[in-house]
């Protein structure tokens, strides 16, 4: 069995606070991270260690801070006026809010896919090649073609578009456009892929394809996915973090969060009693 959910002993799972027992260095590490929109503190003392090559889901009701926290990981919030970060956010041990951080290079390493697919009004091929060009990764024509094909294959889109690479990306279905955006993010070889509600605008079959893709991609990438669909978090993620009112309430293995959460608030949320 190649792809397996770990089979735990239920008896062995005990509440152990806000952090799961994990081995090895984290990929992303937040230390007492606070985030402010003007005077409003949207994130309160978030401390979390996110592991490499797993899928971590952020869940919680609207306005709980999950998307805000996701966007701190590639400094996407910088473009919003009046925002401010306190505390540390380390990626591979380096504080991305420290001095001398090149935000463009950070965003290449930490790719992002948004709720609404946003392909450029260009061909399928150019959508991917464009990202390579702006990152000075284009090289020869043959190299670009190879990278485009590789990215489309990784995004499970190649077979559907290989005969119409030069058609407009906007002619594709919503699900295909979203996978194109994933391919575009993968083309520049990031380490981390942030996904903000990547399937919420898609039909169930397109959603399932995205979920399968997420499951396959974790071999090569660290994936953080924000979703308000709890079932989706349960299906695709290895770890789940539950946010509420700007706080990280509980973070643990997904199977624990959905079968025996340690916190009453988490229990109430996953059982649909609020949120």
């Amino acid at each position: 069995m190649s792809a397996s959910i770990p089979i735990p002993s239920l008896a062995g799972i005990a509440a152990r606070g806000a952090q799961p027992a994990i081995q090895g260095p984290p990929k992303v590490q937040a230390e007492a991270l606070n985030f402010f929109y003007g005077e409003t503190r949207a994130l309160q003392d978030i401390s979390i260690n996110i592991q490499p090559n797993v899928v971590t889901a952020f869940i919680g009701p609207s306005g709980c801070g999950k998307s805000t926290f996701l966007r701190t990981m590639n400094r996407m919030n910088d473009i919003i006026p009046g925002t401010r970060v306190e505390g540390k956010l380390l990626i591979d041990g380096t504080d991305i809010y420290g001095h001398g951080i090149d935000v463009v290079s950070l965003r290449r390493r930490v790719g992002m896919v948004f709720q609404k697919s946003n392909p450029f009004p260009k061909s399928v091929f150019d959508n991917i090649a464009y990202g390579l060009r702006v990152n000075n990764m284009d090289g020869s024509r043959a190299e670009v073609e190879e990278r485009v094909e590789q990215s489309l294959r990784q995004a499970a889109l190649w077979d559907e578009v290989k005969d119409r690479l030069h058609d407009s990306a906007l002619a594709m279905s919503g699900g295909q456009q979203q996978r194109l955006c994933i391919a575009r993010a993968l083309a520049v070889k990031p380490d981390i892929l942030l996904m903000d509600e990547p399937a919420s605008a898609l039909d169930p079959i397109a959603t399932q394809r995205i979920e399968e893709l997420v499951y396959d991609l974790k071999k090569d990438y660290t994936i953080v996915i924000v979703t308000h669909n709890m079932q989706q978090a349960a299906r695709v993620s290895d770890f789940t973090a539950f946010f509420w009112l700007g706080k990280l309430v509980e973070y643990d293995r997904t199977q624990k969060i959905f079968t025996n959460p340690g916190e009453k608030t988490t229990e109430d949320y996953v059982t649909g009693r609020f949120g």
Binding site: I5, I7, L10, A234, R235, Q255, F258
Partner: peptide, 14 residues
């Protein structure tokens, strides 16, 4: 083990 597998499949995959 089988009970745990069933439990996890029910919990995580609906």
């Amino acid at each position: 083990e089988i009970d745990n597998r069933c439990f996890m499949l029910l919990a995580l995959h609906q």
